[in-house]
């Protein structure tokens, strides 16, 4: 029994050094950001870069404040958020459900896989104008465009996660008398969870891109409409300010997902005795 006790102390030591590092890392990050912004600002100030093309940190900050002040931002932000959340939820539910069916049914998988690959090989962004023709310039066309990308990411990552389930775990469960439902709930799904979470993160990013790009093609409201309008006027600072807003939204949603992942996958995090 002493073997596990020694390895436990080793683990504690490892986690201590990890938390010791995190403050230094935060400082280094702040330093990196400050250095980047200073370099940018100075390059513009001393005439090495043209603010008409690259704006400046100060200009972006002003644009951000102006956007926040008019209230124009919020209505558009809400539209984009609704599109992202709807397409994300659709991608996740449809993607996971299809992966489960394809994983269980080999013949269906063999029939459908060339068609799925073909559709997934198309640049969906280029289909944007067609989606708008079919589903109108409202929210629906953007949700379809974003889902057409996110769905495949979710499908493929879940399928990948469900593959190579440990045969011994399945055999052990079957021999104890487990039903197919239990095999799914207690073995296959937890086994696929790391793959599913990797897919969730990518799906969120691509759904956000799909929604904004869809809005840029044709829409009544949304951050993409604003991006398109500012780009048309060569208002670089405002376009960059909008990019920051979108990045902030996606990062917030990702952080929520990380929280869920940390809870659900705590068995796989830092669980081995060997660091690295």
């Amino acid at each position: 029994m002493s073997d596990a006790i020694t390895s436990e102390t080793g683990l504690d030591a490892a986690s201590r050094t990890a938390s010791g590092h995190s403050l230094a890392i935060l400082l280094a990050r702040a330093l990196f950001l400050v250095a980047f912004l200073a370099l940018w600002q100075l390059a513009v100030a001393f005439g090495y870069a043209d603010p008409a093309f690259v704006s400046s940190p100060e200009g972006v900050a002003r644009a951000l404040l102006a956007l926040a002040g008019t209230g124009d931002l919020y209505a558009n932000l809400i539209t984009t958020l609704i599109e992202i959340v709807l397409s994300f939820l659709l991608s996740v539910t449809l993607g996971i459900a299809s992966a489960l069916i394809l994983d269980r049914s080999d013949w269906l998988n063999r029939i459908l896989s060339p068609f799925l690959t073909a559709f997934n090989s198309m640049p969906r962004i280029a289909l944007g104008p067609l989606f708008i023709l079919w589903f109108g310039i409202g929210i629906a066309s953007k949700v379809v465009l974003a889902t057409s990308i996110g769905y495949f990411i979710m499908l493929l990552s879940t399928l990948g996660g469900l593959k190579n389930v440990d045969r011994d775990l399945l055999l052990m469960s079957r021999l104890f008398g487990a039903s197919e439902l239990r095999l799914f709930r207690d073995i296959r799904l937890p086994w696929a969870l790391p793959g599913i979470f990797a897919g969730l993160r990518l799906t969120l990013i691509y759904c956000s891109a799909g929604a904004v790009i869809g809005e840029m093609i044709a829409a009544q409201s949304g951050l993409g409409v604003l991006v398109e309008a500012f780009s048309g006027r060569f208002d670089v600072a405002s376009v960059m300010a909008l990019m920051l807003v979108i990045a902030f939204v996606v990062m917030t949603l990702t952080a929520l997902m990380d929280l869920a992942e940390r809870h659900l996958l705590r068995w796989s995090k830092g669980s081995t005795n060997v660091p690295g």
């Binding site: 775990l169 052990m172 469960s173 021999l175 104890f176 008398g177 487990a178 937890p190 669980s271």
Partner: peptide, 30 residues
């Protein structure tokens, strides 16, 4: 899967996402 036979594999076949207690409970749960 008969309820009067228990098979023990060469590999331990513990569920990595369950604690030691959860693993012992698994057979009883099934």
């Amino acid at each position: 899967g008969r309820r009067d036979i228990c098979y023990i594999l060469a590999r331990d076949a513990l569920l990595p996402w369950r604690s030691v207690l959860g693993n012992v409970e698994y057979g009883l749960e099934v």
